[in-house]
């Protein structure tokens, strides 16, 4: 699996920064969704327009928040993967073993479960 270099401190800083933007993203997307929902009920006697807006809005109302959710999910996976590699690095230091093989064998399924694409086979 080769060598890696993961900086816990920098990783932490990046994720903290992404978290703040992700929070703002989710809030803004939620506000947009609420405003769109409001608009849906504000057509009064223009029933045909209301229907057209509803058809427009229905497949789009959740998109912003789904994107916000994906940012969160991806951050979560990066944190888990970072932890995994850092933990493996710790094992290496302690055992002075060939950690790459150890990681391949033991953690490939774990990485796969975390959404990584082609994961090296043990």
């Amino acid at each position: 699996m080769g060598s890696w270099r993961i900086s816990p401190r920098r990783l932490h800083m990046v994720l903290v920064d992404v978290a703040a933007d992700g929070q703002s993203l989710d809030k803004a997307a939620g506000d947009a969704a609420a405003a769109g929902d409001d608009a849906s009920s504000l057509f009064g006697s223009a029933a045909e327009v209301a229907e057209a807006f509803s058809a427009f809005w229905s497949p789009r109302s959740e998109v912003g928040q789904r994107i916000a959710g994906l940012v969160y999910g991806k951050s979560q996976v990066v944190a888990e993967a970072g932890e995994l590699f850092i933990a493996a690095d710790g094992q290496m230091s302690e055992a002075a073993a060939d950690f790459a093989e150890t990681l391949n064998a033991g953690d490939a399924p774990v990485l796969a479960a975390r959404g990584f694409g082609p994961v090296p086979q043990p």
């Binding site: 890696w4 920098r10 990783l11 992404v18 990485l111």
Partner: peptide, 18 residues
Amino acid sequence: DAQTAWTGLKDAYRQPDT
């Protein structure tokens, strides 16, 4: 903004396979 922050991973996260 989140993507800009995310670019910090190029330095913080280096692991060839992932």
